[in-house]
Nucleic acid binder design. Structure first.
Lengths: 172, 172
DNA sequence: CTCTTCTCGGATATTCAATGTCCGAGTTAT
DNA sequence: ATAACTCGGACATTGAATATCCGAGAAGAG
């Protein structure tokens, strides 16, 4: 069983976006996280399709969260990127072979599929308990309370505020 | 996220083996479940490596459970086939990019990895609650109490008992 | 005791999905 | 009106899961 690496990037991006007041271009997010830009864009599109982030085009465009970070759960992000397909897919083995079960008795999923589904539900419930705001708070605590501040400082350095007085020219 | 189909086959095989008093060859298990023999063999080897089933070679050989079905959990089977690798693998994004975190502060996993690990632990715990004996019981109940009896009848038809009086010649 | 038959075990091709990449459509500020 | 910058979907490539084969070994029959 393997979870797409895009899930990790998507979660990091959501935490990052929760600290910005302005749209952030995909290229900046990729630079910040040290991941290939084109592939990250693919994941951001998935987040956009799920209405977790909104995209703004044009010169000062980019991505921003559509809701407060406290109302976006880790499950939302995982489902948006990884899809809603269950990890375990029953192929109805009980209806195959010489001892095939009567299809009439197969109205509900087989016992094995039920057990796997129950476990998967426990996984989803745990993810639904965590919000992006929770994650941001913990990330900040892990860094000793400096991460979010540094993040916001980096934003104001890259996306020059519209009313920036003598805004610093980009280093490059 | 996707779980190998071998997990489904492995669980079905364990339930099946729990109803046999004698070793069952891989070819019979494949025929019974309607799955390709060579690939099923691969999964059975994984179960054997994990010491969930024991293999006997030779003419009356095959696979059998090494423990009572009530002492084998669904988690045991999943881990044996799918491996112990976590579904979410943290690539330490926090240590990359222009705002890389101080490695000194990265002694414990990042907040995102912790959240995903917690959810995965909930999944594992749910699987550990279910035993192969539970599954066999539920399968039997779903079929109206006929599945296990039919299974045992099929065993005695295919694996002629050593003391079988005038054992029925194979139909072919 | 020898031989035959049946079994498992690991090494080997093939298919499919996830990964990584590119170029065109659209929008905003100049 | 122009031009620059943005996102969005369509296109190769890599890797793992899938499917398969043949050889080693053991048990039983003769």
């Amino acid at each position: 069983m393997r979870l797409s690496s895009g899930v990790e990037w998507g979660l990091h991006c959501c935490v990052t976006l929760s600290q910005s007041q302005h749209p952030v271009p995909a290229s900046r997010l990729a630079e910040l996280h040290g991941v290939p830009q084109p592939y990250l864009a693919k994941q951001l599109q998935a987040l956009s399709r799920a209405n977790l982030v909104a995209s703004t085009q044009g010169q000062a465009g980019g991505y921003e969260l559509t809701r407060p970070a406290s109302q976006i759960t880790a499950l939302d992000v995982v489902v948006a990127i990884d899809g809603t397909e269950p990890a375990f897919r029953c192929t109805e083995i009980r209806q195959r072979g010489p001892l095939a079960a009567d299809p009439e008795r197969c109205l509900l999923p087989c016992a094995i599929a039920r057990a796997m589904a129950t476990a998967e539900q426990a996984w989803r419930s745990a993810l639904a308990e965590i919000t992006v705001a929770d994650l941001a708070e913990q990330v900040d605590a892990d860094s000793g309370g400096t991460a979010l501040e540094r993040l916001q400082r980096w934003f104001s350095a890259t996306t020059p505020s519209p009313a920036s007085p003598s805004g610093p020219r980009g280093s490059r």
